[in-house]
Design a protein around this nucleic acid. Sequence first.
DNA 1: AATGAATGAGCCTTCATTCAT
DNA 2: TATGAATGAAGGCTCATTCAT
Lengths: 204, 204, 204, 204
Amino acid sequence: MSAAPRSGGERAQAQRENILDAAQACFIRFGFHAAGMAKIAETAGISPGLIYRYFDSKEAIILAIIERQLAEKRGNIAALQTRDQLAARIGDLFQRWQRRDEGVMNAALMLEMSAEATRDARIAAAVAAADGESRARFRAWLEAQARAQGIEPDPADIDARMLTLGAFIDGLSVRAARDPDLDPARVAAAVERLVPGLLDFRVA
Amino acid sequence: MSAAPRSGGERAQAQRENILDAAQACFIRFGFHAAGMAKIAETAGISPGLIYRYFDSKEAIILAIIERQLAEKRGNIAALQTRDQLAARIGDLFQRWQRRDEGVMNAALMLEMSAEATRDARIAAAVAAADGESRARFRAWLEAQARAQGIEPDPADIDARMLTLGAFIDGLSVRAARDPDLDPARVAAAVERLVPGLLDFRVA
Amino acid sequence: MSAAPRSGGERAQAQRENILDAAQACFIRFGFHAAGMAKIAETAGISPGLIYRYFDSKEAIILAIIERQLAEKRGNIAALQTRDQLAARIGDLFQRWQRRDEGVMNAALMLEMSAEATRDARIAAAVAAADGESRARFRAWLEAQARAQGIEPDPADIDARMLTLGAFIDGLSVRAARDPDLDPARVAAAVERLVPGLLDFRVA
Amino acid sequence: MSAAPRSGGERAQAQRENILDAAQACFIRFGFHAAGMAKIAETAGISPGLIYRYFDSKEAIILAIIERQLAEKRGNIAALQTRDQLAARIGDLFQRWQRRDEGVMNAALMLEMSAEATRDARIAAAVAAADGESRARFRAWLEAQARAQGIEPDPADIDARMLTLGAFIDGLSVRAARDPDLDPARVAAAVERLVPGLLDFRVA
DNA sequence: AATGAATGAGCCTTCATTCAT
DNA sequence: TATGAATGAAGGCTCATTCAT
């Protein structure tokens, strides 16, 4: 009777978020596949049918969740301010991953998403777009760090530092998923050992 | 008289491998969930029913695949001989991941497995067992490197180096999955920048 | 919000009955095993999936059918009023069994159920519970008969009479299943010969 | 290469019996349906394929088992010699049924067979043939009992007695299946109460 | 906007039966 | 005669999705 709320309305947007929150919680707990629409609806406190007023399909929800997670990642990078904070932030991140904190970018979800990017072109595209943006931000931040140290950044060098730090952080998410008992202090020690050198541009 | 050939027979072992190969290919192409038993059977060139002479369930196949992948990882570590080879090996590994080489430890599989370890106790156990062994081997190798340099290794220091290198490598598998276009030369450059320092025990 | 309608709702109850009716018809026609869920669904005029909104499993349906049949049996006993009716009622019962009347306690179903109780603990439990209640009712009725004849009932004697009559009736259901051509008049004759003595407490 | 052993050969006959024994044990333990050919083969100590040299199908085995059971029933009747033995024999029979004795005519099997006779014409035919013969023998025996008491038997009376006793015995098999805890002494008491009267032709 | 009953394709698994050896 | 690997048609069940209300 009335038009679908796909793009407008505050209320509609709130429902979308509600559903997305529920879906995220379910995906984290059960995985993309094992989380059923019925469970998501129940978690969201609505009926299964209603979900389809806000999303075309389960896959669309997954895509939306992925975009949300990636946006959060972008936010994390944007939040880096000084070099001293970086190490601490990485340590915190690891602990939240390990704790399987549902509110934040979740390690298992990130991993599943990355695996899926291997197979699904749309997910791959979303990931590529977000990663591209994240990397641009991070690069800008790193270059600023270099200049703050009076060094004119060399693109290849920046590349290598970015790659190293990025892979290290992603790798920590893998470890967090696979080893829930790993002592965060040991991780912190490794971070402290690695990060300062990566942010110090006065040495190659 | 008519026991299933679970543990013996050359032929039986060959069929197990055949099924495992097919399953691995399917899991890589479609993911653990989306790969149906029918597709696996077809890929293996056998009928669906026959799979159950060799494996109790789909989950048992997943577990077997995981163990196989982890065994291969162990093998990779065991194959490290000199410090010069390490950087080159990591570079190769990345390229195979990126190429989505089906025969070897596959990045998407590793990621999905890690995500699944978050939810399935049996997978978590298999992963933990294999990781424990891999780490012990790797630690021994690192300690040997230190001693070859005339340094008595400090456990905490070894810890940090292992963690850093391990996370970095795992992180590369994530990047390989998410960025099929990343120039391997850039990865190699990052590896060359990071690894030598991690294997040089004469500096902290 | 979205709980299954397991216990409430007029509509839901009607569907349960609908499914149960269909299942009973199929079980009678094909047997517990050979009646497939698809056939039951078709008979009920619904889709296979819908059945599972109302019953957890095929076994749950079997159990529900059994309980229904046993409830009917209890009803039959409750309906006995005078000794004169008993013989006639038994004769009627036999004829309905022989006719394979689907609406009532069906002989084949009863037999299959009894056989299954031999192997399935839950069925055995359901049967035992119902039988216990039926027997208590029947005992009370028999004792009332005795007292109506001025005889204080002897437990052992009541026992023997109950056992004899119960076995005889159950045996008639076996005969009804195996011999569809047996003349009901002959059964009636046997009943007339046996029953009066069992209800006459003035002779041992 | 060589002819099938369907009808000849001592050895072949022995294998048939072997298979039938195994099948009977499995049918009793699991039911006609749940007993798989593989289990039967294993129980018989042969391979699944070999069964098909001796029987055309699982159904053929079921039919053969049924015939064997019915033959045994015939044997039981033939073994009745004096009236004193009858009551004791019935008591024994009940106990073997209750014990789920595998060697003898098994209650659950008999029940399942009777239920199946309702649906399968071939089983119905086999049952009818066997029952006919059993009844003829029993009738002859009863008539002999009457004459031994100096009474010329009345067909209708014989009929009623046969029906009563037959239904009572069949009913005991139902009770044995459904109530494994029923005290055999109570059954014996009921038998003692019922049987003598049925064999005493000097009273109507 | 919302419900939740209903659908039906598809999944994993079993098992009677066949066949190459 | 015998094996047991192999087949493939169901079977029970799940779940994303639709639709009448």
